[in-house]
Amino acid sequence: MSAIPKSGRASGAFSTTGGRLRLVVAVTIGVLITPAGKVLADNVGATPGCGYEYGVSDDYVPPGEVIPVNCVSHANNKWHAVRPYSFGNQWAGAATAFQNSVSGDYDPTELVAYWTTTDSLPDVRLWDWWYTHGVVAWVDCPADNTGIGYKAAGQATTRWCRGQIIRLDANFAENYNAYGRDWIACHELSHTVGLRHDDDYLVSCTAYPVGGTVSRDLSPHDKATIDYWY
């Protein structure tokens, strides 16, 4: 699948007073040097306490570690199949946003990310419904995942999960325009390839909005991290 050019997509221009200082700090400290010498974002790594293991292995979550609603997992390999299941009929425009993000944000990296309606073992499943519990969107590695492993033995943060689920609560559809849908798509998909939240909201979709603004694109560091892992 060919990539969709994003030359017309710009990060939001609004910022708070402290935004630029925050950005400088984030860029300065928000990187890691790999053994291979590559500079990576530090917002990476699988999270503990994901759905499939929750309640099964109580001592898996280190003391003081937050059990996330968002579950971050790596993908098992570079072929990243994203499959909608009756997706977008409750949240209009969601399918387009996710499809564009797959091809425009992720496929241009070392990942071979693609949209599929037939893959029986997709890496990511997309669902939307009126879930009614107050969360707009989240990712889980559920109990019915189709595979789990670790990219490095003994390192929980390298856990990968196939059959991850991204859920969107259609109750909130009216709160997001096309830009917001693009951000949600890029943000949630990032959690399916091992990216956690970043605070570099001006350049990374993995961040949260500050003052109503957040990038809807992967940052260079996000892309470098993906390239490193895949």
Binding site: I67, V69, N70, G134, V135, V136, A137, W138
Partner: peptide, 16 residues
């Protein structure tokens, strides 16, 4: 640690 296990809204939220 205890309260962290309570799944309150914490993914993408509508308002911070």
């Amino acid at each position: 640690s205890y309260w962290a296990g309570f799944g309150v809204p914490g993914a993408i939220e509508i308002e911070i």
